[in-house]
Design a protein around this nucleic acid. Structure first.
Length: 576
RNA sequence: GCGCUCGUAGCUCAAUGGAUAGAGCAUUUGACUACGGAUCAAAAGGUUAGGGGUUCGAGUCCCUUCGAGCGCGCCA
């Protein structure tokens, strides 16, 4: 553990508990009045019917000498304890954290198996900004869980099954496979889909062929399956190109499409029937779950098997839960899926808990997110009114970043410029998405996300690049600096060290809440604390031992920035 | 109609139930032959949509009104 605030909380917990007669977790938080503020005394005082300042005094008496951690502790205001940490303590903690690959971030006491369901594009359909959110948020959560040592299973639940495939396969036949592959390879999936849809709506015979084709597909007709595989293969090839462009971890090994659960679906029905959980309604097999009603205020069913005997997505999602719990032994299942799916996922959870498939020890969590909006506060659309293609958006990000890098750093060779522009452009798009509270909608704004001011990827990357520049200029390897020589005296040094040490709790808090923006906010604080230090505390111009000490602090800051950005899936260039 | 989510500075966003609600942009005023000015310092800007309640303490929890978005039976 590295966070001084949490260490202090632990240190005080026993004294609080002894006084209160029950366990207390004293809240220690950053404060503008001191390094940290302890506010456990107020709540304890209420329970004891005593004055908060009295309680605070008592606690300090019981806890004894804290001078190894604190330079001063003052009781202030209505009963807060204002704490200033001892500089040596901060330096020691940082020294220890720097020896750790995780920079002091605690790992869970029990290694967990976390299934993260994210991205989920549809076969033969374009990826758009909605997929951006799921992909980028999911990918960041994957990286964080892996970082703290959990076993992470990525699942890309692509839409590769269902009635549209009759229509798509017939269109594939009409078009010819070579021609279709060509359309897919240039990324014109929407064109393909729209043409198929148009024919389906206009041409009765095509519609009938499509219907028959769905039947053939579900019956396992070999030639039909072969063509279906062509569609899936060409689409995933395209998805992979976008994933590489976006620099996320997803590969073919993570594909777990709807079709993967087909053979489980009859078993789902069977198990529900055996459990007496199925009911008939309008010819369909359904589950009625407490608390869900429809427009007429009647019970709303979860449809397990349609009137025509087919299955739909609810059945697949139930099968998914079974698979993840029973085959993968998941402790946690996180669904990085848009907010509109909330009710559906609640029904799936309620149903699988009722069926006994989802034990209370297994967490099922909807990591919901809002929409990407344009400057008009409506769903982001291209000029033509279509949804924005993700690949086109990412291309534009890199183009814009390239222009900026060429302007700011014209002497750099083109290859380096391109490489940096990619990190900056893609980083800016990801960071813009990750840095706001995911449950809210956010407004997509090129100028803001690519700005070097404010809470943006370029600002953080710039702070990192400046630190690298100091070491370059000094001709010193970052790894060669002796961290034991760290000593903190200037107030900007102390402030920076204190923030850097909170990487530990920032990462864990971000995972707890599945909210990447928390890590973003933290990293922004690191960067601003660094620039304050940078302005006021010369590094290379200082004499020893201050010079080396400040180099240690620079290295620590750079490591937190690059590691933190890495957890968000964003690269930190050494120059830009 | 029922349900879910959201409403914070002119704009874009933060804020574990804790002191005087914080940043960036824009506005105004300062600091440059610089360890990278792609920066920094400062000023100004708020009835946290309105109203009740719980609490020692509410932007945060509860109720309610208003506003915005979304969902609600065989698409996924």
């Amino acid at each position: 553990m590295a966070d001084p605030l949490e260490l202090l909380s632990r240190r005080l917990a026993d004294a609080f508990a002894a006084l209160a007669g029950s366990p207390v977790d004293p809240v220690v938080r950053p404060s503008e009045h001191a390094d940290a503020q302890v506010n456990g005394a107020l709540s304890v005082a209420k329970a004891l019917g005593r004055s908060p300042r009295d309680v605070a005094n008592d606690v300090l008496g019981r806890v004894g000498d804290v001078s190894d951690i604190c330079e001063s502790v003052e009781i202030a205001g209505p009963g807060f304890m204002n704490v200033v940490f001892a500089a040596d303590f901060l330096a020691d903690q940082l020294h220890v954290a720097l020896a750790d690959v995780r920079l002091g971030v605690q790992v869970p006491t029990r290694r967990e198996t976390v299934v993260i369901d994210y991205s989920a594009p549809n076969v033969a359909k374009e990826m758009h900004v909605g997929h951006l959110r799921s992909t980028v948020i999911g990918d960041a959560l994957v990286r964080m869980h892996e970082f703290v040592g959990n076993r992470v299973i990525r699942e890309n639940h692509i839409g590769d099954w269902g009635t549209p495939f009759g229509m798509l396969i017939e269109h594939l036949l009409d078009l010819g496979e070579a021609r279709a592959a060509e359309e897919f390879s240039v990324g014109d999936l929407d064109g393909f889909y729209k043409e198929a849809r148009k024919k389906f709506e206009a041409d009765g015979s095509f519609k009938e062929r499509s219907r028959l084709r769905v039947v053939a597909l579900q019956a396992g007709d070999e030639e039909t399956l072969r063509m279906w595989r062509v569609l899936v293969a060409e689409s995933t090839k395209y998805f992979n190109r976008v994933y590489r462009q976006l620099d996320v971890l997803l590969t073919d090994d993570d594909l777990m499409g709807e079709s993967a659960y087909n053979e489980l679906l009859p078993k789902v029905v069977e198990r529900l029937r055996e459990g007496g959980l199925l009911q008939q309604s309008d010819g369909a097999d359904v589950m009625f779950l407490d608390g869900f009603t429809n427009r007429e205020n009647e019970p709303l069913p979860l449809i397990i098997r349609k009137g025509d005997g087919g299955y739909n997505y609810a059945t697949t999602d139930l099968a998914c839960v079974i698979d993840r719990v029973e085959r993968l032994s998941a402790n946690r299942m996180w669904y990085v899926v848009g907010a509109p799916q909330a009710q559906h996922l609640q029904m799936v959870e309620t149903a699988t808990r009722a069926a006994g498939w989802l034990p209370s020890t297994v967490e099922m969590r909807h990591v919901a997110f809002g929409n990407v909006l344009g400057s008009d506060k409506k769903m982001l659309k291209s000029r033509s009114g279509d949804s924005v293609k993700l690949s086109a958006l990412l291309d534009e990000a890199v183009e814009r970043a390239t222009a900026a890098v060429r302007e700011k750093n014209p002497d750099l060779d083109t290859a380096s410029q391109d490489s940096i522009a990619r990190m900056v452009g893609i980083g800016a798009v990801k960071y813009a998405d990750l840095s706001t509270d995911r449950v809210k909608d956010y407004i997509f704004d090129w100028d803001r996300m690519l700005s070097f001011d404010g809470n943006t990827a370029p600002y953080l990357q710039y702070a990192h690049a400046r630190i690298c520049s100091i070491f370059r200029r000094a001709g010193i390897e970052r790894s060669s600096v002796d961290a034991s020589l760290l000593a903190l005296s200037a107030k900007e040094e102390r402030a920076l060290a204190l923030v850097v040490l909170q990487f530990d709790s920032a990462v864990r808090d971000t995972i707890d809440k599945a909210s990447p923006h928390r890590l973003c906010t933290y990293l922004y604080e690191v960067a601003t604390a660094f620039t304050a230090f940078y302005e006021n505390c010369p590094v290379l111009k200082s004499d020893e031992p201050v010079r080396t000490s400040r180099l240690v602090l620079c290295d620590a800051t750079a490591r937190v920035l690059s590691t933190g950005l890495g957890l968000l899936g964003i690269d930190a260039p050494e120059a830009m």
